[in-house]
Simulated assay, not measured.
Amino acid sequence: MGNLMEPSSASVYDGNLASDRVVIHVTSHQRIDQQILVKWRTKTFIARIVEDQEEWIPQFLTQAANFCGENVSRGSPKGSLGSGTTLRFWIDTWLEDKPFYLLFPDLFKLESYKGCLVKDRCTGGGEFSQWEWSWIRPPSTPMEIQQLLTMLTKIQNVTLSNQDDSWRWNADSSSCFTVKSMRIRLQNASYGPTHWVFPWNKFAPHKVNVLGWRIKMNRIATADQLAKRNISTTLSLCPICKAQNETAEHLFLLCPFVDYLWSFILSWCRVSTQKPCNLKDLMEVHQKANLNHWTQKLFQHVILSYIWVIWKTRNDSIFLTKNPSLRRAIKDLKGTSFFWLATRSNIPDLNWEKWRTFSF
């Protein structure tokens, strides 16, 4: 691997890791965060590595690459099966592009020895494909049986040999790990499911911007999201209208209560635009309105105040048993947004009358 400060074409297995410095130049804060992790794990790895323990190298690289995202993990090490004495059956990537514990998660839960080697499971002695398992209990659910049949189909022709297991780094044409290949892979990777940048607004507090970002990513604790995390709740209906199941899209776009609040906002700000059809459009509606740049920022501030008031109304209904009130919501919307604007901006001649009539 050589000195980690410079690109190297040396094999990943030579174990010649004398330097504890890793310096990789990147072009954004997000990639800096990714590289800090790689650097930290590299130092930790170097501190632990000892002679004749080369298997730690691909394990470390696999973990670091997987952490940095799917586009990066495609270049992580992949094992080439030989005797099966060093490759772990579930954890290492050796047959498919992903390890078996990700491809067959239900079966992995049933495995009694999750760090087992390929040789521990393939007992055909290299002459034929024969597999033995050590389950906590036999696979029984439809999903477990389906995953078992799929896995058996993939490994039905796998046999062992007398050769040693080996590793190759798919991100470099030489099949050997280089820092340069990892850096290029990070620079070319795209982060996030939609490659969308949240339009932050300096007039609203950070917690409100974060709430807007989480709403767009559908990462707030609505009833449907809590159910996905196996968190039981006594109420699955929207706590405001109590008529439909609670989802982020319903809570901020489809609930009859927010329909009235949205109509008030358009009338108050004198904006003519269509109602957003999804959460992403809600966070970008200020960009599509026919407004100048300055008024766009103010209208976006109102939208962030709108989602904050809705979320507060929802929580008050659940935890304080307050009945939702449109009049109180409108009062909170105008008062809270004005307070944030007055304390976080230097708009000249800003006063309550000007904000109450949205005279900008």
Rank of each mutant, 00 (worst) to 15 (best):
D332P: 04
I231H: 06
W169L: 01
S173G: 11
Q287I: 08
Q147V: 13
L282N: 00
S175Q: 15
R48Y: 08
A221Y: 13
V179M: 10
R48W: 10
Q53P: 01
S83F: 03
D120R: 01
S73C: 08
R74I: 11
A65H: 06
P199M: 06
R121A: 00
S83V: 03
F198L: 10
E55K: 09
K334M: 10
C269L: 06
S236L: 09
C122H: 00
L350H: 07
S161W: 00
A18L: 12
L160F: 00
A171E: 09
A221N: 15
L251N: 02
F252E: 02
Y101F: 15
L87C: 06
T86W: 04
W311N: 02
G79Q: 02
W268M: 03
K334I: 12
K119N: 04
E127C: 04
L282F: 02
K322E: 07
P58A: 05
D20P: 07
R270G: 14
W131G: 00
L282I: 03
S80Y: 09
A10E: 11
A342Q: 12
W200Y: 13
I220G: 10
L110I: 08
L279G: 05
P276C: 04
S9F: 10
N346K: 13
L291M: 15
T27S: 14
D281C: 11
T194W: 06
